[in-house]
């Protein structure tokens, strides 16, 4: 349990530094530290699937962010925060915190599965009969590609649509046209 608290404090410190620092590059590096802390936490919670995905996506996202920040001229964050925006953010965070307390009280104890409380939860079926119904030894894969394949189809559709948008907006031809019109 101690290692989770250590990782949690590390991630909290990294998050506060990422918000409070003035250099954009160190803010991006702190975001990377939060991601690697989350990946280590998933690994210690015995969820290697999510740990692999988290660390790999974190590396790619960090590369994109560092490239985007290094090539920019504006690497310093300047300007004071406005009072009204700070108040609104604090209120929203406080409401989410209260809702989180209410939700977390309904969850089972740390480490115990949810079908210990609710007998006919769907995860009970996945764990007990997943191998016989799908033949996949990795139960996570059997859930995301067999039991809940609609979810994966939606995720793939979202990715596909966003890639189409990104390539259409960011391609060379479009960039040249934009420079011609603005110049």
């Amino acid at each position: 349990m101690i290692i989770f608290y250590c990782l949690l404090i590390f991630m909290l410190i990294a998050a506060i530094v990422a918000v409070e620092t003035e250099k954009l590059l160190s803010s991006v590096i702190c975001i990377g530290a939060i991601g690697f802390g989350a990946s280590l936490m998933f690994l210690f919670l015995r969820a290697p699937d999510i740990a692999i995905t988290q660390i790999v996506v974190e590396v790619l996202g960090l590369i994109i962010l560092i490239r985007a920040t290094i090539s920019r001229d504006l690497t310093f964050i300047t300007g004071d925060r406005e009072f009204f925006e700070v108040v609104v953010s604090v209120v929203i965070v406080f409401v989410i915190f209260l809702a989180g307390i209410q939700v977390l009280q309904t969850l089972p104890d740390f480490g115990s599965p949810i079908f210990a409380q609710v007998a006919d939860a769907p995860s009970n079926t996945y764990v007990s009969r997943g191998l016989g119904k799908t033949g996949a030894a990795n139960l996570v894969t059997s859930v995301i590609l067999d039991f809940r394949a609609y979810d994966t189809l939606g995720e793939a559709t979202v990715l596909f649509t966003s890639i189409i948008g990104a390539t259409v907006i960011l391609r060379k031809k479009c960039r040249k046209k934009m420079e011609e019109t603005t110049g």
Binding site: D49, T53, V57, A136, N138
Partner: peptide
């Protein structure tokens, strides 16, 4: 991906 941790998304990345 169906035997060990991982899968299509992580491998693709």
């Amino acid at each position: 991906g169906h035997l060990t941790p991982g899968g299509g998304f992580a491998g693709g990345v």
